[in-house]
């Protein structure tokens, strides 16, 4: 495996690192999108860990910075943000196609990265799968019951709740990754369309989403038939935080991503066979 640095894109404004396995050509490439404002290495270097694990399984990867993030510059076009993201990711896919022969792609994104993965997966036919880390979810009656009922039964929690409301703390707010949440009906329809087109979708939620997601059951409450579709996978790591700051949590996530890819979008190399480097270590 080798890693190569690239400056690419319509204005030469994008910077990315491609991880290229030794096989001359591979069908499925992995594109990793920025999590908020963190540059392409990802929170606590998560994207580097994912990329190198997947490279070892034969998947070419590209971790890159979208326009104006990390080391990438602006494209000097006056495009709406959504259009710019689509164009940037399309050029990332072009690059990995050229460098590694990939013809289909899996997008991986955390938080705003999941939002952008969703945006691109809606429209680009080269996207064959997506892994949404703390992507869209919506509060449901079940969520509200699970969220508030334990508080009502606990006087200490009630006191803390009232105290917080009456005396706002001087603490710094959690990082705002600038995610704009579209209406549930729109997202549900878009996900259903992706599945209809044959995409494989993996949704991973962490305990860091407890303000809007607090149980596996909520996924079905939100998305109905999308949740039970065979192309859909759900994982919920309640103990982990939003950015996987602990090594054990990060390893569990990387294991999950590797396992999901090997099962759902196994690599096919130039010779037409499945990648021989599949490890069963993490499949148990």
């Amino acid at each position: 495996m080798t890693e190569q640095a690239f400056r690419f894109g319509r204005a030469g404004h994008l910077v990315g690192i491609a991880g290229l396995p030794s096989a001359a050509s591979a069908q499925t490439g992995i594109i990793m999108l920025n999590a908020g404002l963190v540059h392409r290495i990802g929170p606590f270097r998560l994207h580097v860990a994912i990329a190198r694990r997947l490279n070892a399984c034969g998947y070419p990867t590209l971790r890159f910075d979208l326009s104006t993030l990390g080391d990438s510059a602006a494209s000097d076009e006056s495009l709406p943000r959504a259009q710019q993201v689509r164009a940037d990711v399309a050029e990332a896919m072009d690059l990995l196609g050229k460098q590694a022969g990939c013809t289909r792609f899996v997008l991986i994104g955390l938080c705003s990265g999941a939002e952008n993965a969703h945006l691109v997966a809606c429209s680009d036919p080269r996207v064959a799968g997506a892994i949404f880390l703390d992507g869209f979810a919506y509060r449901t009656p079940g969520f509200l019951l699970r969220h508030y009922l334990p508080k009502l039964a606990n006087p200490v929690r009630i006191w803390r709740f009232v105290h917080r409301r009456l005396r706002p703390s001087g603490r710094i707010a959690a990082p705002d990754f600038g995610v704009v949440v579209p209406p549930l009906a729109q997202v549900r329809a878009e996900l259903a369309d992706m599945l209809q087109r044959g995409l494989k979708l993996c949704f991973v939620y962490s305990g860091g989403t407890s303000e809007y997601f607090n149980h596996r059951r909520q996924f079905r409450e939100c998305y109905g038939a999308v949740a039970s579709h065979p192309g859909t996978t759900l994982e919920y790591f309640k103990a982990a935080d939003h950015t996987y700051i602990l090594e054990g949590d990060r390893r569990q996530l990387v294991d999950t991503i590797e396992r999901w890819l090997l099962l759902n979008l196994p690599q096919v190399t130039a010779g037409g066979g499945a990648c021989p480097t599949i490890s069963t270590t993490h499949l148990t």
């Binding site: 603490r171 305990g207 309640k238 103990a239 935080d241 950015t243 602990l246 090594e247 054990g248």
Partner: peptide, 21 residues
């Protein structure tokens, strides 16, 4: 507990500094 749903054990956080082993 603003980061974690529940406090984590010392073992889970051992050998690391703020996200890095």
């Amino acid at each position: 507990t603003r980061r974690f749903d529940q406090a984590r054990t010392a073992e889970a956080a051992a050998g690391q500094w703020q996200g890095f082993t």
